[in-house]
Design a protein around this nucleic acid. Structure first.
Length: 745
RNA sequence: GGCCGCGUGGUGGAACGGUAGACACAGCAGACUUAAAAUCUGCUUCUGGGAAACCGGAGUGCCGGUUCGAGUCCGGCCGCGGCCACCA
């Protein structure tokens, strides 16, 4: 009976070879059958695949194989998100060229993915660091520029002092760089931007129609775009109090109903008026400098005290010129939202209240909660931001908040000062333009030339791609392109005079914002996309990946698709019709007596339940079993997919990944669970073989009669089929697995 | 602070508003083995009674509501997790 076993190690490569030789997963663009595009987020070629990849690609592969079995023409491609910092880090640490490092990693990971037995069309493989790919990205950059979607502006940017680069807001987490973990500082630099905010309204509205996206992601995107309806109000300034005869101060507010509760005005430290006032007031200048120093450390914001500095300026209340409000510079006002200035209503905004209490500005409640007596309603240290009726507000008294807002807006819209209305209704978004400049080598060069005479000149289309030079060194931090001896020195395409090549490269998120479109025809050399194919295949019917990309990658891709439509490279707005965000792979952590983390492969775990204990495989030394956490290098709780595939086979690894946990939740990788999956693979193999033997032995097959075991089996089979089909459609793989177990039983 | 999600056996988790705990893991018992592994069979929410087959009671974080009927729907708490966060 020893030979009576399924030998995955022998069978899997044999079949994988057969599939490859027959090209059965190659998808034809001319196939007349209805299309189905299933895509998993392509990997960064870090060197090895990890269990997160296994889970992600196992799910996508089930969908691909299922849809293929249902008679659809399935596109299921794979590629590499190949630009980025780790390649440069490797170059600095190990003296390997980023290109060599990246392509070695791609080769290694491709072999690993192949051993997983995924039904991928490898003929469409792309790597974003390949000039055959980024050349088209440069072309689109120029087209976007032409279409007014690219801007170069001096911006306050997040500067990562360790990686020596600019980061997008989205890449700053708790005031630290998302990769380096260094505290980010603010710097003024000319930067390239994609004008994503031109699509703010549309990107927001269209979320409603993404009905096959997880609600969680839709909410996150809505919040990120952050639409607020409010009023832009121009406050007149008392000219006697202003430094350079400034006449007004504009604010944006969503609570214009509380205008009669105003006690002060506050400016951002970066507001031009603050700078003007500071020019004549050294103490104020010092305060502003202090605010800037604190501005970056997001961690402190929570606890930071509200601080302000009275500029001496006075603003006049829009409904009462006799009512003068002091103008402060305050540390809690950000310049890049609204106008960088507010009016403070302490009674109904906690921040304003904290501020007013500190500086003794008092407060006047103007919204009275239902059931409260206006005469006794007072605010001390908790602002009231709930519903109610207007009080202490002259002509607004008795109105609801909404009525009061409308009345204020209506009146101020029709009041004019210096020939213009005092207020206008305005919609503000939290979303900022996408800063794509990176002072790095290993990215897509921005195809632009700076000329003394002609200014900023696009690289002519015929000169694309602007290729990265190969001869660069990494012995210092900073951008190797900047200090390359010749690369940046070029002739101006317009006037021929000596000019300078742009040395910024694009954010890696640009690379991944359109790869799904390139997959539809990766062979076309004359354009980024083949319009016939891109319009046929897109949108992606089912996109699967980690929830960590819920904002960045997915929002950028939605923007990019719109920009491609505007420039004729695609014909639709939304790239991903169906989105699924899978959970992480987590594992127990192990710690040796020395306190060092120990890898699962070095540990022997025995017993179950209470008696469960672990020892070091090598020495027998006891090991502490720690909490279950995301697989990570730092905690060393990773399991190498290669080891699992070598000892159990890919089917076991994939089967286990889909069992037990619902796919959107975290799955706990356990040795016992893998063993269970392995047992079932064996059992299934035996069952199928036995069934084959029975079938071969039956001399006269006839339809089974009612009550016979064969009929019951047929019924069970059909029930299982129905359940499994339904649950694959709903991506409930763990339930599919249970149904299959049930049927096998 | 804001928004969102989740609380079901020892564990991961099933359950169109209709037999709660499918399926798996762990555990226990048995069969086969000289033995182990593998495999197969059975038991396994708690609790009372019974030698057993079985009979009864409680039970999906807590409190209340809607309903003939609630793990599921509604309201309020408690706890855990995630995302965003001086966004005016």
């Amino acid at each position: 009976m020893a030979t009576d076993r399924y030998n995955a190690r022998e069978a899997e490569p044999r079949w994988q070879k057969a599939w490859e030789e027959r090209g059965i997963f190659t998808t034809s663009n001319d196939d007349p059958r209805p299309k189905y595009y299933v895509l998993e987020m392509f990997p960064y070629p870090s060197g090895r695949i990890h269990m997160g990849h296994v889970r992600n690609y196992a799910m996508g592969d089930v969908v691909a194989r299922y849809k293929r079995a249902m008679g659809l023409n399935v596109l299921h491609p794979m590629g590499w998100d190949a630009f980025g910092m780790p390649a440069e880090n490797a170059a600095m640490e190990r003296k390997v060229h980023p290109k060599a490092w990246t392509y070695q990693n791609i080769a290694a990971m491709k072999a690993q993915l192949k051993s997983m037995g995924l039904s991928l069309d490898w003929t469409r493989e792309i790597a974003t660091c390949d000039s055959d790919y980024y050349k088209h990205q440069q072309k689109m950059f120029l087209d976007f520029w032409q279409a007014g979607l690219v801007e170069r502006k001096l911006g306050k940017v997040n500067w990562d002092p360790v990686d020596q680069t600019v980061l997008a807001n989205e890449q700053v987490i708790d005031g630290r760089g998302w990769r380096s973990d260094a505290i980010v500082v603010q710097r003024e630099m000319p930067q390239w931007y994609f004008a994503i905010t031109k699509f703010s309204e549309d990107l927001l509205q269209a979320i409603d129609r993404l009905d096959r996206w997880p609600e969680k992601v839709r909410v996150m995107q809505r919040n990120w775009i952050g639409r607020s309806e409010g009023l832009h109000v121009r406050f007149a300034l008392d000219p006697a109090t202003t430094p350079n005869r400034e006449t007004e101060l504009a604010v944006f507010t969503t609570r214009h109903d509380t205008l009669f509760g105003a006690k002060f005005m506050a400016l951002s430290a970066d507001h031009p008026l603050a700078a003007a006032a500071a020019a004549k007031n050294p103490a104020l200048a010092e305060f502003i400098a202090e605010c800037r120093r604190h501005g970056t450390a997001q961690q402190l914001i929570d606890t930071a005290e509200k601080l302000g500095f009275d500029t001496g300026m006075k603003a006049l209340h829009p409904f009462d010129p006799e009512w003068k409000l002091p103008v402060y510079v305050a540390n809690f006002i950000v310049m890049d939202y609204g106008t960088g200035a507010i009016f403070g209503c302490p009674a109904h905004d906690q921040r304003d209240l904290d501020f007013a209490n500190k500086y003794g500005l008092g407060n006047t409640p103007v919204v009275c909660p239902p059931g409260q007596d206006p005469k006794t309603f007072v605010i001390t240290d908790a602002a009231y931001d709930g519903d109610g009726r207007m009080i202490n507000s002259r002509f607004l008294d008795g109105m609801t908040i909404d009525e009061a807002k409308e009345e204020v807006a209506r009146r101020l819209e029709h009041t004019s000062r210096e020939g213009r209305p005092v207020a206008r209704r305005e919609v503000n978004f939290r979303l900022r333009d996408w800063g794509i400049s990176r002072q790095r080598y290993w990215g897509c060069p921005i195809p632009v030339i700076h000329c003394e005479q002609c200014g900023i000149v696009p690289v002519p289309e015929g000169d694309l791609p602007v290729k990265l030079p190969d001869d660069v060194d990494f012995d210092r931090p900073g951008n190797p392109l900047e200090r390359h001896p010749t690369w940046k020195h070029v002739a101006c395409p317009k006037c021929g005079a000596p000019a300078r090549r742009e040395t910024d490269t694009m954010d890696v998120f640009v690379d991944s914002s359109w790869y799904f479109a390139r997959f539809t025809d990766p062979w076309i050399t004359t354009a980024p996309t083949n319009r016939r194919q891109v319009d046929h295949w897109l949108p992606v019917d089912q996109y699967i990946g980690g929830v960590e990309h819920a904002i960045l990658h997915l929002l950028y891709s939605r923007f990019f698709t719109r920009a491609m439509k505007l420039t004729g490279h695609a014909g639709l707005d939304e790239p991903f019709a169906g989105l699924f965000t899978q959970g992480m792979v987590v594992h127990e952590t192990y710690r040796a007596a020395s306190g060092e983390w120990v890898m699962p492969a070095e540990v022997k775990v025995e017993g179950g339940g209470e008696a469960r204990r672990a020892t070091l495989l090598a020495s027998g030394e006891p090991v502490t079993i720690g909490p279950i956490e995301k697989m990570s290098k730092s905690k060393r709780n990773t399991v190498d997919p290669d080891d699992i595939i070598a000892s159990y086979g890919a089917d076991t690894a994939r089967w286990f990944m889909l069992s037990d946990s619902p796919p959107e939740r975290d799955v706990i990788w356990t040795e016992e669970g893998v063993q269970g999956a392995w047992r079932f693979v064996q059992r299934l193999w035996r069952l199928v073989r036995e069934a084959g033997e029975v079938a071969a032995a039956a001399d006269a097959p006839r339809p089974p009669r009612f009550g016979e075991p064969a009929l019951a089996l047929r019924k069970a089979a059909h029930r299982a089929l129905a359940h499994v089909s339904e649950d694959i459609e709903r991506l409930r793989f763990n339930v599919c697995v249970a149904h299959i177990y049930e049927f096998a039983n």
